[in-house]
Design a protein around this nucleic acid. Structure first.
Lengths: 347, 347
DNA sequence: CCAGACTACGAAATCGAATTCGTAGTTCAC
DNA sequence: GTGAACTACGAATTCGATTTCGTAGTCTGG
């Protein structure tokens, strides 16, 4: 057994030697060039098969100035929102035989910059900037990669003319509100997120649109802006809303965490969900089905967004012109028991 | 403004021209070769700075046969276990200026194989195989990358002599059991995972060891093997255990999902947690703090495992000899209210 | 003043594949 | 039968950085 024999990689030269041609012909045969005869091509392919030859992507990349590689830079690698989008991106890339470089910036501009430089050095064909937070505006690191197609995912920008892929937050809030209206609720409160998030404004618009369409008055007193997205905030705002009279008969929360806080507040006041107050959340987080009662929630189309980002980027790499556009992907309402709708089967 | 001017990348040749030397000297100057004078080196560095030169990793990789790149292949990209480990891997890699290719196989051998071939083509310097499931044995795709250092993460193998990085499951079950013993519980049940997982056996050993050390009899009737890790299974097994008399005064569950099921079963029998029965889970899942009562749970050292995997792999790439070893990383007990311990402050 | 050692740099080969271009060899038409 | 038009392939160059090796030039010591 020749275990310690240094096995060199098989190159086109080796294949050429076996097939009795030159490396140039091997390349042509493998790249479906019309200028090789069928006889020669099959000899080459046979040699390729026998030797187990695989073209070296690095050499190919150097020559072609195309590496068949993407960069994915996120600020929150293990975020509950990010990973599903990442899966979508990876899947599309892998379908087209693209590799994906994964970079985590922890939200640090310095780290992000370092990663983008690394991606530039490695000659990636395109970059996806994936945020876990959807902040309104940030720096524009895109300028660091001139000539490299870029897509913003789950993140707004007006600084650079690149596509931004986002959930249809307006629609999400609208269908949540419509659902409650359809169940006969009329005094529907809205616990929104912090105002410096773009999503907050979009969702408010959706909530308002649903009310208007149903002929229900929009009342400022029923709308709260949170200072965070978290449970404490939901608890506080809900408690506050319960001081109104009459109390709301339903509430839309801009995150499931806030909805969980709202549930706590309702329970501690002795109110029943959904009998007294119906609750709808946002994000369809994993824990939401374990809440008491299981929470109806607006699911963000994270996977579809990831796929679309990948598709857009690959199209741009393929030569398609990129434009500065905001692509909105439809949200979905996951109905459980917290709103009192007939079907709550989901466990 | 010359916006449409095709900006070519700056190469070592350009730097050389500006500095009045040859590309060879540029390379030496940048790589701290001793055979360039200080005067020349600073001229080169100045030119580098002025032109914003960055060496092309692809060309460098071709020449050096080292790409400064890792492959990370997982079967569950968005799994709750995987992402934290991924973060650890990415962080270590990025500290050493390595890029990480992200690959998701969905557990499909064909996809995994395709990804490994891609990584081979791209000349990655090493590979981490990251499982979300810790199956006992699988195929040995490692053979596909001869000469490429590999580390198994969260996954066993005996087929190939590579390091396997795993949580110390034995310890995890032991500290959970010891904790309950320390709180005065003596009739401690154990709802274990499915038997075809290696972790299941390790945890059983830990549970048993803790009992033995405390002089408490190990009783087969108190130990259940699940057929899944999920909530239904926890519910069923717990219900079964409650038919014993006397009933257990505590239970260790091999997953938080099973613990949630166990809690349901306890509640539906009218038993109080932790007063009547103390409950400890495993995995410290995000939802666990939202259970009623908040669940004490064994946290897996996922981040540390990811970092260690990265460190081991980089060491192997650096020339260190790899051996077939099982590296166990210590688990941590996160105490909340479900076991009746004094301190339950956590969120 | 010159042999030998040393310094600092450049010319050229290399990594592996793709591509351009040149050219034997064939085919066809007139 | 000869020139034109193809066909099928190879030689050589290229991508950009590294590395080996060779060599002017400098320095030192005898």
């Amino acid at each position: 057994m020749s275990t310690d024999e240094q096995r060199r990689r098989v190159t086109a030269r080796d294949v050429a030697a076996v097939a009795g041609v030159t490396p140039a012909t091997v390349s042509k045969a493998l790249n479906n060039s019309p200028e090789v005869s069928e006889a020669t091509r099959s000899r080459v392919l046979e040699a390729v098969r026998r030797l187990g030859y695989r073209p070296n992507s690095v050499a190919r990349g150097l020559r072609a100035r195309r590496t068949h590689t993407l960069g994915l830079v996120t600020d929150d690698l293990e975020g509950v929102f990010t990973t599903t989008m990442m899966r979508g991106v990876e899947e599309v890339a892998s379908e087209q035989e693209f590799g994906v470089f994964l970079c985590n910036s922890y939200g640090s501009a310095a780290k992000e910059r370092a990663h983008l430089e690394m991606l530039y050095d490695k000659q990636v064909d395109g970059v996806i900037l994936l945020s876990g937070y959807r902040v309104r505006e940030r720096g524009a690191p895109v300028r660091d990669l001139p000539g490299t197609p870029t897509v913003y995912l789950f993140q707004y920008t007006n600084d650079v003319p690149v596509p931004c892929i986002l959930p249809d937050d307006e629609m999400g809030a609208r269908i949540a509100t419509e659902h409650l209206l359809g169940l006969g609720r009329r005094r529907i409160a809205f616990i929104n997120g912090p105002p410096h998030y773009e999503a907050t404004h979009d969702r408010l618009a959706g909530y308002r649109a649903a009310l208007t369409a149903a002929g229900v008055d929009f009342r400022h007193a029923l709308v709260r802006m949170g200072s965070t997205w978290y449970q404490d905030e939901g608890y506080a705002q809900m408690s506050d809303l319960l001081d109104l009279s009459p109390v709301p008969d339903a509430v839309v929360c801009a995150s499931d965490h806030m909805a969980a806080g709202a549930l706590d507040a309702l329970h501690s006041r002795g109110l029943r969900v959904p009998d007294d107050v119906a609750v709808v959340g946002f994000d369809d987080r994993a824990f939401s089905r374990h809440l008491r009662p299981p929470l109806t929630s607006v699911a963000l189309p994270l996977y579809e967004m990831g796929r679309l980002a990948g598709q857009r980027l690959l199209a741009a790499i393929g030569g398609e012109k990129q434009s500065h556009e905001f692509l909105r992907i439809p949200c979905d309402l996951v109905v459980r028991e917290s709103c009192g709708a007939p079907r709550g089967a989901d466990r």
